[in-house]
Design a protein around this nucleic acid. Structure first.
Length: 647
RNA sequence: GCCGACGUAGCUCAGCUGGUAGAGCAGCGCAUUCGUAAUGCGCAGGUCAUCGGUUCGAAUCCGAUCGUCGGCUCCA
């Protein structure tokens, strides 16, 4: 029998017979390691312990301490969940389970009735029982025919149809533990008790194969960890994350809220408007540099406009259509692009003017389905820092680069991490020519690469008029949301018959780009509130300074300090309440005011203020001369520094 | 829109198997004039989401509607 060379993480090499499994390698290294092993990595890729090794490879053994341990444990927990459901509900048909990179796993079932909370409790109990049974996971390679026969005999029709999805050339494996068998690639832990702790978290309906026209399956979500301690830590972490939820922070900081009287349409309180306007002012301040010119187009258009743009045909269900005078049909605009195309078409353009970049902050209304609304992240009424670029086709690349330059500048000023970037390709229903889509999709991919971002592809996810770049950020629940986006429009310039006069004195069709940096103000404010936990940068903070007099006799001086700060545009809250200093500080802390200025007897005499920073050191309570503080704060606000300079 | 859960004072929540609503914080009043995360006392505040049904009696049970939350679909 031939031997193969196994490289280990410590640099050593091990010779084992060809055909040995990863688990055999672990055993050779040590019995303790073999016992603790959950999975392995072959040349860096997660693999099942029972995978036979036929060639030289680098092997790592994954134990409970490994960062990828959770993936394996949760993947195995899927099978345990399906097992438990089949034991308690023999008529349920299993579909498939899934483990993504979060701490959740899920499994879908076709059931007559949805699971009740009591059902879920008993399923979880059954799962714990299966863990206690310490059943061994067994891996088997079987033929396609055997697999079909096996699941068909058990009435698992959904499973049989899943087998058809497996590419012809791919080996089919099944995993058994106890009485339960599932079609699966693995990897799995050795025994069910290696899933140390689990919990069912929720259930939900999910369409079969994600298709609205198909049956609704019952999906159960759960989470699992190597130990009870890790599970508890995770649950505590989730509890903590809830405190960063923008809906909660919006309410406690008095920024914004939604109310049943207007589903999906936010109310902005005065402090929320500081944020909203502050962000718009910031974007607006960058427009001269990037060559954008702000315009304002109507809110209501004759529906004709949207027939021309294609929205009426493909976006109608998301639009609010109103009855105008004398059978005239009017539509509230869901996007600015048709208006901007119309605006472009009303004037004669020369190639010398291009690129023309129309920016607009108008409010937009989309009739989103009720079940999709969430706080400010998904709304029916919103504004985007929207713009449309009309340019010559050969100018597109430069525009794409400029887009990334501007997003970079904005992200930096706001202290944002790098986004997850993706390019979305043409959906099932689209307008324009497929060939144009292909060209544009390639252009976008290359631009993302030039900008130095890693990029994934979302097949079929683009809007109906052109492919798009999406910059995604995660909210406090780990959900990804698109903020910045850029879309090449391969459809509207043609539909609107847009033309410009070229160098050759002939008419040409301009290329068109849609883009937004913040995305929608609503969604941006939601995400940004969660990222910062309400600790906005000094320049954007709704209240920048809390002015805290020690006693009533200091009010007169505090009033003069307030005047000085307001005079340079600083937003000040003067706490005149008859409370102790500790109380006022606590309030300012809870309200996340970035800077507190204390004034008492000493400050009145010296003409100073004593700062207390919300972030950074709180010990340095050195008094600062009022005029020094005023000019320092004025500069910080003006320059939009992410973190304020310390005093 | 679909599946599930939920909806009690401005906020966070209690109210067991039906017997007529309670706490903390916030608010208001009075006292306290206080130096780095909560001073004390008092007062007020609710057609228990809405509508209908069962019942001698409903916050509690049933149904419908609206909304919220978590998913699905969709999407900035």
């Amino acid at each position: 029998m031939s031997t193969i060379q196994i490289r280990l993480p410590d640099g050593n090499t091990l010779a084992v017979p060809a055909g040995s499994t990863v688990l055999d390698v672990a055993r050779t290294i040590g019995a303790g390691l073999a016992r603790a092993a959950l999975a392995g990595r072959i040349d860096g890729r997660l693999a099942d312990l029972r995978t036979p090794l036929e060639a030289d490879a680098a092997i790592e053994i994954v134990t409970g301490k490994d960062p990828q341990a959770g993936e394996v444990i949760r993947h195995s927990a899927e099978h345990v969940m399906a097992d438990a459901v089949k034991r308690l509900f023999p008529n349920a048909q299993v579909d498939v389970g899934r483990t993504d990179h979060s701490e959740k796993f899920q499994y879908d079932f076709l059931m007559e009735h949805p699971f009740t909370p009591e059902d879920l409790e008993s399923i979880e109990k059954e799962m714990w029982k299966i863990l206690a049974e310490k059943s061994e996971f067994v891996r088997e390679v079987i033929s396609r025919e055997e697999a079909v026969a096996f699941f068909a005999a058990r009435g698992e029709k959904l499973k049989v149809s899943r087998i058809a999805d497996i590419p012809e050339d791919q080996e089919i494996t099944i995993f058994r533990h106890g009485e339960f068998t599932d079609l699966c690639r693995g990897p799995h832990v050795q025994r069910t008790d290696q899933i140390g702790a689990l919990q069912i978290t929720e259930s939900a309906g999910a369409y079969w194969r994600g298709d609205e026209s198909k049956a609704m399956l019952q999906r159960i979500y759960g989470t699992a960890f190597a130990t009870e301690k890790k599970l508890q830590e995770h649950l505590a972490q989730i509890e903590k994350a809830k405190n960063r939820d923008h809906r909660r922070i919006g309410a406690t900081l008095g920024l914004f809220f939604t109310d049943p009287i207007a589903p999906g349409s936010p109310f902005y309180l005065p402090k929320g408007m500081i944020l909203y306007n502050g962000l718009i002012d910031f974007i607006r301040s960058l427009y001269p540099k990037y060559g954008f010119a702000e315009v304002m187009t109507p809110q209501l258009f004759r529906t004709e406009l949207f027939k021309t743009s294609g929205h009426y045909q493909l976006f109608r269900k998301d639009m609010f259509v109103l009855e105008g005078d004398e059978d005239e049909e009017l539509s509230v605009k869901p996007m600015n692009c048709p208006g901007h195309c119309h605006l472009f078409s009303t004037q004669k353009h020369s190639y010398r003017e291009l690129p023309i970049r129309f920016a607009e902050f108008s409010r937009l209304h989309r009739n989103e389905r009720s079940g999709t609304l969430t706080g400010l992240s998904r709304v029916r009424s919103m504004a985007q820092d929207d713009a449309h670029v009309f340019c010559e086709p050969e100018q597109i690349d430069a525009e794409l680069d400029s887009f990334f330059e501007m997003t970079g500048e904005v992200y930096q000023a706001l202290g944002l991490e790098a986004p997850k970037v993706a390019v979305s390709t043409h959906p099932a229903e689209f307008t324009g020519e497929l060939a144009d889509w292909d060209v544009a999709e390639r252009q976008l991919l290359e631009a993302v690469k030039r900008a130095g971002h890693a990029c994934s592809i979302k097949p079929g996810e683009a809007a109906f008029y052109g492919p798009k770049i999406e910059c995604d950020f995660r909210d406090v629940m780990g959900r990804a949301w698109t903020l910045s986006t850029l879309q090449v429009d391969v459809s509207m310039p043609g539909r609107f018959g847009l033309r410009y006069v070229g160098r050759d004195d002939k008419l040409h069709q301009p290329a068109m780009l849609h883009r937004a940096i913040l995305g929608s103000l609503e969604r941006f404010i939601a995400l940004y509130t969660e990222m910062t936990g309400g600790d906005f940068p000094f320049w954007l903070a709704p209240v920048q300074v809390a002015l805290l007099p020690i006693a009533e006799r200091h009010l007169a001086y505090a009033g003069r300090v307030q005047q000085a700060l307001v005079g340079v545009g600083i937003r000040v809250f003067l706490d005149t309440r008859n409370e102790k200093l500790g109380y006022k500080i606590r309030e300012a802390e809870i309200q996340k005011v970035p800077l507190m200025l204390v004034v008492g007897d000493q400050e009145v005499v010296d003409g100073t203020v004593t700062p207390r920073h919300r972030r950074g050191s709180k010990q340095s309570n050195e008094a600062v001369a009022l005029d020094v503080m005023v000019s320092k704060l004025a500069a910080d606000a003006r320059e939009r520094r992410v973190s304020r300079s310390e005093d």
